[in-house]
Design a protein around this nucleic acid. Structure first.
Lengths: 402, 402
DNA sequence: CTGATTTAATTTGATTTTCAAATTAAAACT
DNA sequence: AGTTTTAATTTGAAAATCAAATTAAATCAG
């Protein structure tokens, strides 16, 4: 409607079909406010293009009158991959256009930090390995979403800096598109979790919510008005580095008082080392094992361990309360897989949030814990790719018709 | 384009004309991506409706070819009032449709907290007093924007709670519309400052920015994607109650560690009372005088006073840094009139922010201090009314044409 | 089993919105 | 006075949409 007459209707209807999956035309008209006549015309076009298909109306048993015919996204229309570039591995997922997971794959990286070309090469290998058993090739993909830690300029596909890349200011999108011959969509990994929640998780119903992830650091994704909010320099949502104490504990980032410096593994271990330094566990044990031992000890009533863990939880609650006080979201999702974060997901922590937010008549936002597997990130990447591919498909439709 | 065919184009073009004030049709086409033909048609319509007018093209001296004809909003099209309900007074401003200030007025309230009817009555009186000298009546207004402290549901015009109202859960919009016979637009006062900055101030060029105000409390307005972000329960942006210290200083709100409990007047005085309790200034002096004395003393090198003020500044910087870490805005505007906030607006504070935000290659967001007069709030209210009236005008256009 | 009823979807014919290309307008150069 | 240049408008067509009428596919009632 703006600019060259572009098919805003197509876009809206396709999105509505996706979100309300099996939905009859009459309900689409109701929902979007677009007339039934137009819904018929446009959906016919979408069906003709293969993006949408009819399914036998089900559910409401035998109502009177002409039965409604449900529409849904046609999964076979496109194939996308989602790839998360993690510390020392890649995790991949394959999805159809409907969002059904068709395959998953995991790939160990030769090194933690790689050059661009090497990384892209490993990426291509991993993709091939995932696709081969299905008799598919990379060229069958309509798009690939890539999640990477660091500072990413989404518009340009530029990775300013990432722990996984030895180069700086690399246009990872171009590099991947050149190597794979497939449209690539690159984003910061925290945003991808938010996207995963938006499309597949607890954020499906919400328009404004926040996703917090705990891995080695603390990440955050912000969804405002159904869209990822990325900040203006691509470095927003640095929840882990919000300050919770003036001149507080030293953080990996070099600053003091960051939330991360109170809740991250290294923070807990740093504290534990003061009193438990002579522990058997301290020698030769991995960080993970030591954390586990600390948490166990806290659970068993060790006062010092308990104190360490308690403070972490209280700081975490304070940080989350600040988010609520600033954003007033509908929902906060604590997404993660690690049982090691149990202490941060405890009842007391959630309750602590409620005590630190501004009190109004209305109930506080829901805080929910969502335990995903490792694939969460990759699924988010796939969701991102689906978004991009959908956009391209609608665009193609417009061009094709003209 | 969605729903009944509504004139999205009209809306877009009117907004573009407003934002780029004197602008030729060809530039409008360029900017909005709408074809020149459509720009001609739509602007003709807007001119016919009296919302827009042509002005002799100026600026570019005598270029070759047919000279461009600039368009601008026609001020005379509508008249709006902006009203800020403050502690013990109303401040009002009168604006034309172009945003030119035509009059201002100030009105003392009989009491700090009033019943709805009494407040509305005083409001009508004040409005009348402002309009009378101009030979205008309230019925000449196309809308009135009202800013009030407290929890406001903008959608419904409901004031859940406000220090200025003795009643709770009042539909202030209905009450005012009934009394004045003019469309009313009610919002939280912090949001209005953001709107004032967006339309008349430093936020004109920015799409994502934050406005922080210091009065008796600390307020914040958030602009995301050119729109006020209000949170989902109407209680977001409570910057003053973000926690900056676990189990910290007691706040008026009853919680501990709120930023306000470190930077507000009462917080400074609380600290000062510990050591300066026997001061001449402490007896019989007003709070304002005592604050002034404290700041003066800090400035003169008194170590205790200096320490009190220093901490307030550092806490303030920390709070702002957290906003940057979360939002990554283009711009932070510190808006206020009070010289008493000088210590919070000091160089050191601004520098302190930069030391607490996540470091990236790109420069940190600008932090600017904008000293407005008392009218800032009322102007914001007027800006809000203008937004509403513009919306109504476009809507009327659509209905009228059909 | 047949026709009435009900509801969903489509078709019809018109209207609105928009655009590209051609045309006109208004100025400065030559 | 004619040429050039640029802005704005007009023209004719295409695209998008809608309200109302029609058709389709089912159940219900007798």
């Amino acid at each position: 409607m703006i600019g060259q007459q572009r098919s805003y209707g197509r876009r809206v209807l396709l999105a509505a079909i996706r979100q309300n999956s099996p939905i009859a035309r009459i309900d689409l008209s109701e929902q979007t406010g677009i007339s039934r006549a137009t819904v018929t015309t446009v959906t016919a076009e979408l069906i003709r293009a293969g993006l949408v298909e009819e399914v036998a109306a089900q559910g409401t048993e035998m109502a009177r009158g002409r039965p409604r015919v449900d529409l849904k996204i046609r999964g076979a229309a496109h194939l996308v991959a989602g790839i998360k570039i993690a510390n020392s591995s890649l995790s991949l997922v394959l999805m159809d256009f409907e969002g059904n997971q068709l395959a998953e794959h995991s790939h160990l990286l030769s090194r933690t930090t790689l050059g661009t070309d090497a990384l892209v090469a490993e990426l291509a290998t991993a993709l091939g390995d995932m696709l081969a058993p299905l008799g598919k090739a990379i060229s069958d993909l309509s798009g690939a979403g890539i999640g990477i830690a660091g500072i990413v300029d989404v518009q340009q596909g530029l990775v300013h800096w990432s722990p996984s890349l030895s180069d700086r200011n690399i246009n990872l999108r171009s590099a991947i598109e050149a190597a794979l011959g497939v449209p690539a969509f690159v984003d910061n990994d925290a945003n991808l979790v938010a996207m995963a929640e938006k499309r597949f998780g607890l954020g499906r119903e919400a328009t404004d919510f926040i996703v917090v992830t705990i891995e080695s650091g603390v990440g955050m994704g912000i969804v405002i008005n159904n869209e990822i909010y990325r900040g203006t320099r691509g470095c927003g949502a640095e929840f882990g580095h919000t300050k919770v104490h003036l001149d507080g504990a030293l953080c990996r980032c070099g600053q003091r008082g960051c939330l991360e410096a109170y809740v991250a593994d290294y923070a807990l271990l740093r504290e534990a080392s003061v009193t438990h330094s002579t522990d058997a566990l301290a020698e030769g044990a991995s960080d993970e094992q030591r954390i586990e031992a600390l948490l166990q000890r806290a659970h068993d009533g060790d006062p010092v361990a308990g104190n360490i863990v308690l403070r972490a939880g209280r700081m975490f609650a304070m940080g989350l309360a600040n988010i609520v006080n600033i954003f007033d979201p509908q929902l906060i999702v604590l997404a993660g897989e690690r049982m090691q974060s149990n202490h941060l997901y405890a009842e007391e922590v959630i309750a602590g949030i409620k005590n630190s937010i501004v009190q109004v008549d209305q109930p506080p936002p829901e805080v929910v814990i969502h335990r995903w597997g490792d694939l969460m990130w990759a699924k988010g990447a796939a969701a991102y790719a689906l978004e991009g591919v959908e956009e391209m498909a609608v665009e193609a439709l417009r061009a094709g018709e003209g």
